[in-house]
Amino acid sequence: MTRQGGSTATPPLPRLTAARAPLTREVEVVDEHGARERVSIPAERDLTIYVDRRELVTLMTLGAQPELLVLGYLLNQRLVKSAFDIESITVDWEVGAAAVKTHAGVDRIEERTAKKVVTTGCGQGSVFGELMADVDRIALPPTRMTQAQLYTLVNAIRLQESTYKSAGSVHGCALFTLGDEGGADAEMQIFVEDVGRHNAIDTIAGWMAMRPQEGEGALGPARVFYTTGRLTSEMVIKSAQMGVPIVVSRSGMTQMGYDVAQRVGLCAIGRATNRRFVCYAGADRLVLQPELAS
C-alpha cells in the first residue's frame, strides 16, 4: 500500500498468465469381451510452485486454470492474506512450474511451511501448519438457503457438461449465489474439475480473490459451495476461510468435518442427489420445505 496525495492506493491485482493444457487424452483399452476401443482419461500432470524462487510444493492437477489454483492454494494455506500480496503468477507447462512473485515476500515462510499435514484429499493433499489455527476467528455471514434453492443447485450440477461425464476419475466443485430467500434461484458462478476436490476448491478460492469487489459490503453475495467429494475438515475449513457458510456434497461427511462445521456455524449438507439430502450441521441456515421432497 502506498500514499498518493494523502490517500491509500490499492495495489493492482496480480498479473496472471493463461496457461492451458488438454484436460483429457485418449488411450486404447481392452474390454471384458477382448475388444479394443479408444476412451478418454483425465490428463493428470504435476505443477511445482515456486514462491519468490523458493520451491514450495508440487501439486497434481488437470491444469484447467492453474494460475487460479496456485493463487487459491496460497490463500487457503494462509501463506498470503489476499491477491494484492502477489505481483504475478506465471505458469509454464513445458517445465511444469508456476513462478509466484510477491510484493514483499511471505513472512516466516520457512517456519510456516515446516509442518505439513497429509490430508484425506485425492492424491494425498497436504496443508501447512495447524489445521485449526485461527478457525475461531472466522465470522460467517448469516446466509440461509431454501430447500427449493438446494434442489435448483443440485439439478444445475446434474445438467453441467463435465470432464467426469466423458472421462470419469475427477472431482467437481462449484460456487453458487442465491437470490431472495423466498425464491428458488441459485445461480452457478464457476464450475471447476480436478483430480482432487482440494484442488478444485483452491481454484474457486483463487477465482473469488480476483473479484474482490464482489465481496464488498457487510455481507457480500449469498454464496453456497458444492463439491462432489466428501466433506472433510479440510473442505469445511477452506469453505469457511472463503466466507462461504453453506456447503453441499453428493457424498458424506467425516467426524472432524462435522466438528469443525459445528464450531464455526457452517451448514453442511450431504448425500444430495435428486431430492434427497442429509443436513449434518447448521440446520438453522436451511429453510425446509418438506412438501417439495415428494
Rank of each mutant, 00 (worst) to 15 (best):
V127C: 10
F128A: 09
F128P: 04
E130G: 12
E130P: 03
L131Y: 06
L131M: 14
A133T: 10
A133R: 13
D134A: 05
D134H: 07
D134C: 02
V135D: 06
V135S: 02
D136T: 00
D136P: 05
R137I: 00
R137Q: 12
I138P: 01
I138Q: 03
I138W: 03
A139E: 12
A139M: 10
P142Y: 05
P142A: 07
T143F: 06
T143K: 08
T143C: 14
R144T: 06
M145S: 02
T146K: 06
T146S: 15
Q147F: 04
Q147T: 15
Q147W: 09
A148I: 02
A148K: 07
Q149G: 04
Q149C: 03
Q149Y: 03
L150D: 02
T152L: 00
L153Q: 12
L153D: 12
L153M: 15
V154M: 11
V154E: 07
V154I: 15
N155R: 15
N155T: 10
N155A: 15
A156Q: 08
I157W: 08
I157K: 08
I157G: 07
I157T: 08
Q160W: 05
E161S: 14
S162L: 11
S162G: 11
T163R: 00
T163S: 07
Y164H: 12
K165F: 03
S166E: 15
G168M: 08
G168Q: 13
G168C: 10
S169G: 03
S169H: 12
V170D: 01
V170N: 06
V170F: 06
V170H: 07
V170W: 03
H171N: 15
G172D: 05
G172W: 01
C173T: 12
A174M: 06
A174Y: 00
A174T: 07
A174S: 14
A174F: 03
F176V: 01
T177C: 09
T177F: 01
L178Y: 09
L178M: 11
G179I: 00
E181Y: 11
E181P: 12
E181I: 15
G183S: 15
A184I: 02
A184G: 08
D185T: 14
D185N: 06
A186C: 08
A186H: 05
E187T: 15
E187I: 12
E187Y: 08
E187N: 11
E187L: 09
M188K: 02
M188V: 10
M188F: 02
M188E: 02
Q189C: 07
Q189W: 00
Q189F: 03
I190T: 12
I190A: 13
I190S: 13
I190N: 12
F191V: 04
F191W: 11
V192S: 01
V192W: 00
V192R: 00
E193R: 07
D194H: 00
V195R: 03
G196F: 04
G196Q: 08
G196Y: 04
R197G: 14
H198E: 15
N199M: 06
N199K: 06
N199S: 06
N199D: 01
A200V: 05
A200C: 10
A200F: 01
A200K: 02
I201R: 00
I201T: 01
D202S: 15
T203M: 04
T203A: 13
I204G: 05
A205P: 03
A205Q: 07
W207R: 03
M208D: 11
